[in-house]
Each structure stands twice: as structure tokens, then as C-alpha cells.
Simulated assay, not measured.
Amino acid sequence: MTASLLTVARHAHPSGADVVKVGGELDQHTSPHLTEVLDGVHLTPGTTLVVDLSGLMYCDSTGLTVLIGLYQRSEAAGAPLVLAGLEKELLRIFRVTGLDELFTLRATVEEALAL
């Protein structure tokens, strides 16, 4: 088996928002890594979490489930969640599944932070 094909980097933005950048392939094999990082994000009321998916090349149903779980957590905490940078194919999946109605989607992290 090869090394993980998923990269996850978390940083605090000067605005106070947390930004998690995800790249590579998000599937049943790599989703535990993303889940671990997201579980480490302390969600607080009014503090925005932006998940930058601009580097994500592939996402299966397991990956979508991780994002839905994050959405549920952020809603319960009163912390706005924004997904940014969805490439054309991933955006199509979100539209087909109706997830574009659930999540706040923005083209870039900058647009997400301007909310």
C-alpha cells in the first residue's frame, strides 16, 4: 500500500477563523486522517471554520459523510462552516446529492472569509 494520498493542513486566519486545507484523495482509506484533524478543531459560536477543498482531486461517499458530520457538529456549536474551492466535478456531486443546499459554498477562501 502506498502512503496516504491526502494532505490536511490547519491554520488560524488573521480574522480569527480556522482554515483547514484539504488536498489529494478523500476516501474510505484517507478519511480517518481528515476526521482526526477536524476533531481537533474547537468549534465556538460565531467563529467561522473554512474547509478549503481546492486541492481535493477525488471524494467518495465516505468523504462526503465526514463533511456532513462536520456540518452537524458546526451547527450544534453555532459555528459557521463554509466549504471553499470545490472543483467542477466535486461541485457537480454536491449539486446532484443536494449537498449544495446544506452547505455554504464559496469559490475561494477569501470569499468564504468575507461572509
Rank of each mutant, 00 (worst) to 15 (best):
M1H: 11
M1R: 03
T2M: 09
A3Q: 14
A3P: 04
L5K: 05
L5R: 09
L5V: 13
T7N: 13
H11F: 05
A12L: 09
P14F: 05
P14A: 01
S15H: 05
A17K: 01
D18C: 00
V19L: 02
V20N: 03
V22I: 06
V22L: 03
G24V: 12
G24T: 12
E25S: 08
E25L: 11
E25H: 11
D27I: 04
S31C: 14
P32C: 00
T35G: 04
E36V: 07
D39Q: 15
D39Y: 01
T44G: 09
V50C: 03
V50K: 01
V51T: 10
D52Y: 06
L53S: 01
G55M: 02
G55D: 03
G55S: 06
Y58H: 11
S61C: 15
L64A: 14
L64P: 07
T65H: 09
I68C: 08
Y71E: 08
Y71H: 15
Q72H: 14
R73P: 10
S74W: 03
A77L: 11
G78F: 08
G78T: 05
P80S: 00
L83F: 07
A84N: 04
A84V: 03
L86V: 13
E87M: 03
E87C: 02
E89Y: 10
E89M: 06
R92D: 14
R92S: 12
F94Q: 04
F94V: 05
D100F: 10
F103N: 09
L105Q: 06
R106L: 08
T108V: 11
T108W: 02
V109G: 07
E111C: 08
A112W: 00
A112P: 15
A112S: 12
L113V: 14
